[in-house]
């Protein structure tokens, strides 16, 4: 079995920002239980800045670590900067993921996008398009 980096194991064993959030400003859920991955991300947003982020994840070690790292990366960022956090940025911050686990970092990026657009929809703002996103590979 592919071994994870120390960083992945740290974020898996001691996940940051795990749990539900009361009255979030944006929520994004991605993945499919049939495939063994669901990621739900909660955002607290004030003045266009992500004040807090939390996650709930059903999935493997890489999925949980990617969720944890993603919340760390977007906290304190503007929505524009958070939108630009790519799956590669998540994987790099985790000191790499095994290639068959890269889809977990893609889920994290998608969860961020979905949560931001959920917020924008609630604010009656236009939705940001997926085409702006940096596609992996």
């Amino acid at each position: 079995m592919a071994m994870y980096s120390k960083k992945v194991m740290d974020h898996f064993m001691n996940p940051r920002n795990v749990g539900e959030m009361e009255n979030p400003d944006g929520v994004g859920e991605v993945g499919n239980p049939k495939c063994g991955d669901i990621m739900r991300m909660y955002l607290k947003i004030e003045d266009n800045i992500i004040q807090d982020a939390k996650f709930m994840t059903f999935g493997c070690g890489a999925a949980i670590a990617s969720s944890s790292m993603a919340t760390e990366l977007i906290k304190g960022k503007t929505l524009e900067d958070a939108w630009d956090v790519s799956n590669k940025a998540v994987a790099d911050a985790l000191e790499g993921l095994p290639s068959i686990k890269m889809h977990c970092s893609v889920l994290a990026e998608e969860a961020i996008h979905k949560a931001i657009n959920d917020y924008r929809q609630k604010q009656n703002l236009s939705l940001w398009g997926e085409k702006e996103e940096e596609k992996p590979e």
């Binding site: 996940p15 749990g19 994840t57 059903f58």
Partner: peptide, 8 residues
Amino acid sequence: RSMSPMAT
């Protein structure tokens, strides 16, 4: 389970 969105 405390981390799982399915359990809640």
